[in-house]
Design a protein around this nucleic acid. Structure first.
Lengths: 251, 251
DNA sequence: CAGTGGTCTAGACCACTGA
DNA sequence: CAGTGGTCTAGACCACTGA
């Protein structure tokens, strides 16, 4: 229960504010430098307690964070081990369209091309990954960045799961923004692919037919029930998805 | 210091194994359902202690996890607040090429097209984001999936930071795999774009000129020093990056 | 300057599992 | 069955900051 003032760490120690963060960094450095190779068993919590002269919770916090970040694997009775190298992961931020456009200093404009309710066709059902026909809302729109087309959006929304969307007039707020702020989702899947623009798509994006475009198709679910499927198509020469990643999991 | 056996939770309670996980889930559910809208101040830790009849550390663990996941924001003195809706994020797994091919049941073959050391050109320096010329290793290769070209790889490696790579014969192990298992990295950036194959690239990928291709350009650093820049180019019609995501941050 | 979160202590009991 | 991690307790002191 006692909480004595700790001796100030010497300069040689990489003395940051938090002890648990320092423990984590020390171990991370040993792993990243190769000093502790994959498969190596690292000291047990009770040893690290002694080494750092701290409570076990403090060590546990550091090791748990390393396990979440994928740098170590922990097994009861056996101990904690440096992980085999991970497949890289890239975190792609899919931001709000309006914010994305305005971040470049351009004026954002939404142009709704079509907006209608219907019963799902077979192709709609495939996109929503459902087996039975159901009422849907189909929206097609263009997002403008100044005088240029930023992207074309082709969206289906499952009206049986999001009935309130039927009453929304999408005159300025993009459908994706409305959904994100009004409909919670529990799972999403993104598929990124490249395609050649056909005549129709080329006209919509103001490109030459055959131009390479980047398509991000995203499906979201809430408790296993489909909410929406959207295809966002961007001119390939201008649009880039950029992802930063560091192995710490910090993004 | 006492640790009395807790009353078994009733069925009405969403009684999962861990109390901190249950607290987290309860709050997450209230946020996701909209019962606690963005901006709402949530109960302080000391109130939740009483509600769940537990120690403050247990509540803190749940709330810290929610903060890391981006569902709440915490401010000293002010309290904890439900976050504004996040931009979606998609975690793209960039797996080992060989493993990716073999996962589809195909035979993987590496074909090294060129492999040479040179001093960096201006274009190389731009790709590696460095200002001064330096020795590099440039590798071009094709990854085969059975009789089809899975991808074309155009890679630069900074020999001043990874000198040991000069001695590696890339006869069967892809360069990316060697790097990932031998060179720790601290940061990576991925840029995903679509492009039309020119005559040369089309020949390499066995495509028609002009076909849409997906390019993933990735740079990695170790302690701010460049390690490698690679352009992986995939036939757009066959290759897809698929990303799953759930808002809990579980991936 | 009082309220809130951030972090830590010095234990405790338990679940799991591999030597 | 003993060693290890998982989780929790009942506090403590402190940093920060906004009413």
């Amino acid at each position: 229960m006692e909480n004595l003032k700790r001796e100030p760490a010497t300069d040689a120690d990489s003395a940051k504010g938090q002890l648990s963060a320092r423990i984590r960094q020390d171990i991370e450095r040993k792993i990243m430098s190769g000093e502790w190779p994959p498969g190596k068993r690292i000291p047990i919590e009770r040893e690290l307690m002694i080494e750092y002269d701290c409570a076990r919770m403090t060590v546990n916090k550091a090791l748990s964070a390393l396990a979440v970040a994928g740098l170590i694997e922990r097994r009861r009775r056996a101990g904690s081990f440096v992980s085999r190298p991970l497949s890289q992961a890239a975190v792609i931020e899919i931001s709000d369209v309006r914010a994305e456009v305005e971040a470049t200093g351009q004026v954002y404009t939404l142009e709704v091309l079509s907006h209608r309710q219907r019963t799902s066709t077979r192709m709609d059902m495939k996109r929503l990954d459902v087996e039975r026909p159901r009422p849907i809302l189909a929206i097609a729109c263009r997002h403008w960045s100044g005088q240029r087309v930023h992207s074309f959006e082709d969206r289906l929304i499952d009206l049986s799961n999001v009935p309130e969307v039927a009453a929304v007039a999408f005159d300025s707020e993009p459908p994706g923004t409305w959904l994100r702020t009004h409909v919670p989702w529990s799972e999403a899947e993104n598929r990124i692919t490249a395609l050649n623009a056909d005549a129709d798509l080329a006209a919509k994006l103001l490109l030459k037919e055959g131009s390479a475009c980047l398509q991000v198709e995203r499906s979201t679910w809430r408790d296993d029930r489909p909410i929406t499927n959207v295809r966002m198509i961007y001119p390939g020469d201008s649009y880039r998805l950029v992802a930063h990643f560091s192995p710490k999991g910090a993004g």
